[in-house]
Design a protein around this nucleic acid. Structure first.
Length: 376
RNA sequence: GGAGGAGUUCCAGAGCGGUCAAAUGGGGCAGACUGUAAAUCUGUUGCUUUACGGCUUCGAUGGUCCGAAUCCAUCCUCCUCCA
């Protein structure tokens, strides 16, 4: 259940109530694809990093360790020791990112496993079954994420199929939630808006999927090749058609600037690999901008990554030390930087919520939008 | 004392008469990354020029040759083996 607390322009401050806890929105969902935040960060660490929601992946966990295995072990919450809400992505993005290894039909998609090449079939029913076994709080509908730019006709027919898949996802989820052996019988389902960069497709898709009265609605197929301006335009186009009483989730986005722009346009939930992947690659997000900790200028810099940050990394370690750890290939470099970036992203959302609570989001936006996106 | 071997660009190490400013690693310096096939990938790494190009490099010094990192002589330094 979603409760809208207040708005400022299109920006929304709300609460998303789930069986595993209430999410204060806008919120960031921390990506733990294989059941762990990459960079040696566990669910226990997440408790100290202002994390509210963990995101795991259907496709990856189906391959390893296998969703049946996770089910036998009591579901993802027990398995990963994260007791807050968990959202599982449906595997739809892998249809896109493993494009060379696939074959799409009306029934579903045949993948070649990225691990050993063996054939895997996944359609809406299979995706729901896997997510039910994983027992996440929120399941995502099985969709196709189309790369931009896309031909209109392909975007249209793909979007139509994604909508048909959504009906099947919904029916299968209802069935699974009613089975006696299902771990989480209250598993929620989010639908996904597609339609590439075409306004009419996006609007038509949104109007049709909102009929299903799902637990939340995602905007998918963005940040996959189009410019940021086009992405913002698509959000502005779709947002008026999205239910006011359901959480809106912008999938896979994004940079701190993308997030500020999207919150301003009415988005409640986000997820992105940027804070963790870039951290592993030596980049630290700060309120001053993004730092590349490999850069020689940090060799003798005794300050914390972000002088305004209160994360476990910044409370204890210097830029010089982290620079040294990266140059030395120590995995502690990644762990410290990943923890910082996760804390930073979750803090960014905390500050966004505070500013909304105090009716000064636009001021917060103006103050940060330029600085936060620069490289320093 | 005798017999061999080796000295190459930041390091290791190829090259053994022209197509060599010199392969390939590493290191250095930067860049990318947006529902994670990613602790990954890319660029760059003698000086100079916007570029074409020019200039100086392969232990040192001389020499042979149209032309030398590559051939010859001497010297210096290291390594191995035999006394």
């Amino acid at each position: 259940m979603y409760r809208l607390i207040k708005t400022e322009g299109s920006a929304r401050r709300g609460e998303f109530v789930t069986p595993h806890g209430t999410v204060q929105t806008p919120a960031f969902m921390n990506v733990a694809t294989c059941g762990a935040i990459k960079g040696a960060v566990s669910a226990l660490d997440l408790k100290n990093l202002k994390c509210q929601v963990q995101l795991c992946n259907t496709y990856h966990l189906h391959l390893r360790p296998g969703d049946e295995t996770v089910r036998k072990l009591g579901g993802l919450h027990k398995f990963t020791r994260w007791d807050g809400p968990i959202l599982t992505d449906s595997g739809g993005f892998q249809v896109f990112s493993l494009a060379k290894l696939r074959n799409i039909t009306e029934k579903g998609v045949t993948f070649a496993s990225h691990i050993d090449g063996h054939k895997i079939f996944m359609g809406p029913e299979e995706s729901m079954q896997i997510q039910s076994n994983l027992a996440s709080t929120i399941a995502m509908a099985f969709d196709e994420c189309v790369e931009n730019p896309a031909e209109y006709e392909y975007a249209r027919s793909s979007c139509e199929r994604t909508i048909r898949w959504l009906y099947r996802s919904k029916a299968e989820m209802n069935r699974l939630n009613s089975l006696p052996d299902t771990i989480n019988k209250q598993q929620m389902l989010f639908g996904i808006n597609q339609g590439s960069t075409y306004d009419d497709l996006r609007i038509d898709c949104m109007k049709r999927i909102r009929e299903l009265d799902l637990d939340g609605y995602a905007i998918g197929g963005l940040a996959v090749g189009e410019s940021a301006e086009i992405m913002y335009h698509v959000i502005e186009t779709v947002e008026p058609e999205m239910p006011k009483d359901k959480p809106r989730y912008l999938m896979g986005v994004g940079t701190p600037a993308n997030i500020l722009e999207s919150v301003r346009r009415g988005v409640d939930l986000f997820d992105c690999v940027l804070p963790t992947r870039n951290a592993r690659h030596g980049h630290a997000f700060t309120w001053e901008g993004c730092r590349n900790m490999f850069n020689a200028k940090y060799e003798l810099d005794d300050q914390p990554l972000d002088t305004a940050c209160n994360c476990p990394t910044c409370r204890n370690f210097s830029r010089a030390y982290i620079h040294h750890l990266f140059k030395s290939g120590e995995m502690l470099a990644m762990r410290l930087c990943v923890m910082h970036n996760i804390y930073f992203f979750n803090s960014l959302f905390e500050k966004i919520r505070e500013s909304l609570d105090q009716d000064r989001f636009s001021e917060f936006y103006e103050h940060n939008i330029t600085k936060i996106s620069q490289r320093i």
